[in-house]
Simulated assay, not measured.
Amino acid sequence: MRVAIFSSGTGTNFEAIADNKDLKKAGLVISCVITDNPLAKVIEKSKARGIETIVIDKSEYKTKKEYEETIYEYLKQLNVEYIILAGYMRIVGDTLLNKYPQRIINIHPAMLPSFPGAHGIRDAFDAKVKQTGVTVHFIDSGIDTGPIIDQVAVPILPTDTIEDLEERIHIQEHLLYPHVLNQLINKMRSNNL
């Protein structure tokens, strides 16, 4: 399975996927990393692993359509089958959604449908709920509304600081995302038999 990983930041979920030996054995190929942030730490991390890294600055395009068409041209050249969002802080538009229907996957730091949006961890923490979690889902045109693939709960302890909760959420993200991708590869393989 050939994938592109989209990331805007530090790239910890990228690392969890790129360094997972089971995913490599199963046949996951990271064709490229695409970032919209020329200062993203994921750039160094992907280059250190010998993965093609493409910086596409949205501010250089008049419209989202032009921006996504440029991305799609790269993906097409690299025969990318799936897009994996790993801390990509842009809403994916119709151009990519139509080219990759049910083949764009996102990870969200909350138990969707609760706490969608950019601040899932903080929103759950501020709401003083007893648990939150991590969700991996296909994306659609809404914000964190696509079909859920898998979830894992993470308790919010009475003694937690926001940093404690973030750390436990990230640990679960780094376990769940590779697990889901491995299942997807195995499902694809069994469907092709």
Rank of each mutant, 00 (worst) to 15 (best):
R2A: 08
V3D: 02
A4Q: 00
I5C: 00
F6T: 13
S8Q: 02
G9K: 07
G11M: 01
N13G: 01
F14G: 01
E15C: 02
E15M: 02
K21D: 13
L23Q: 10
L23N: 08
L23M: 11
G27R: 03
V29F: 10
I30R: 11
C32L: 10
C32P: 09
I34T: 05
I34S: 02
D36F: 11
I43G: 10
E44G: 09
K45W: 00
K45M: 01
K47V: 14
K47A: 12
A48P: 00
R49K: 13
G50R: 10
I54N: 09
I56Q: 12
I56N: 10
I56D: 05
E60A: 10
Y61F: 15
T63P: 01
K65V: 14
E66I: 06
E69Y: 02
L75N: 13
Q77C: 02
N79H: 15
E81S: 15
G87C: 13
V92D: 13
T95V: 15
N98A: 13
K99G: 08
R103T: 04
R103Q: 14
I104R: 14
I105L: 15
I107T: 14
A110D: 06
F115D: 08
G120V: 05
G120R: 07
I121H: 00
I121A: 02
R122T: 04
D123V: 02
A124T: 00
F125K: 06
F125Y: 15
V129C: 02
T132G: 05
T132I: 06
V134G: 00
T135Y: 07
H137G: 06
F138L: 15
I148Y: 03
I148L: 00
I149W: 08
D150L: 08
A153V: 05
I156Q: 07
P158N: 15
T161M: 12
I162E: 07
E166N: 11
E167F: 09
I169F: 00
H170P: 00
I171D: 01
I171G: 01
I171V: 14
Q172R: 09
E173M: 05
L176S: 03
L176N: 04
L176M: 09
P178N: 04
V180W: 14
Q183C: 04
S190H: 13
N191C: 11
